[in-house]
Amino acid sequence: MIGKLLRQPWVFSFGAAIAVWLATIAYTGGQGAGAILTAAFSFATFTIIVGLGQMMVITTGPGNVDLSIPATITLSGVVAMKVMDEDTGRMVIGIIAALGAATLVGVFNYGLIRLLRIPPIIATLSSSFLVLSAAISYGRGIRIKPPEPLAQFAETQVFGIPIMAFAVLALSIALAMVLSRTVYGRSVLAVGQNSRAAWLAGLNVDRTRFLTYVLSALLAGVCGILLSGFSRGAALNMGEEFLLASIATVVIGGTSVAGGRANVPGIWGAALFMYLLVTMLNTFGASAGIRLILTGLMIIGVIVAAGGEEQR
């Protein structure tokens, strides 16, 4: 039983998250143990949302990655706040507009990849410049406050756990089911393992990848809306830190970078680990340089530990 559990690549990210948390509260003498976890769940949810999208994209095969996630977060946040204009009655329109904009980004991304045959890494990077420029010219750096219900949804907690985390948990379970039970989900895995074999087996490779890029953009859109509710306003640099975070959570979480193998629980462990790691180093009072070095080393450590078990 334990041996079986240890073979799961996601165990390591959770183990690392717990170890880091214990080290932090050992340093503070137990002070703030619960509050640190609450904060971790609040902030990790945003990383989890985009991490799930990135995981799906990476799973569709080598070379597939979505670098436009930060720009899409910013665009959807700006569109949502501007359309809602602090008016509760316009919340639904704002959400639809923001998700619509995000969907367009996804469609555009795959258009570049498929029709113009640009490698995904270049296509999504260049589209992110266009998307960010669109957000800048549409928003002009404006920080409009979210309507009160949206802000409250993003902030409400039950027993110290934000309700947003429960919503994202439901989303994660749904996505795990999609991956293992539906034709689309299994196609994603099959295409990622060998796209030619999947094509010969009669799977629609293009449609699978297209849907995946749209899904990733859509999740980035959801993240943008929630994030602007949580931090009470959209800002032009709100998505910036999610580029590395989205990829790192996927890799640390045990999803295969070569594609074909996804790992939903690992995203949770990795997102919590990444947040708690920064918290720990901040609490220890480590300087920025040491913090970056240690972050790098620990990420490598977790990947090596998890990767060793992967080669079965």
């Binding site: 509050a35 920080r143 800002a235 830190e241």
Partner: peptide, 16 residues
């Protein structure tokens, strides 16, 4: 950046 500051402060605050 407001978002980054919020995240960093929320993380260290419980231990202070």
């Amino acid at each position: 950046a407001q978002e980054v500051a919020q995240k960093a402060v929320a993380g260290i605050l419980p231990s202070l």
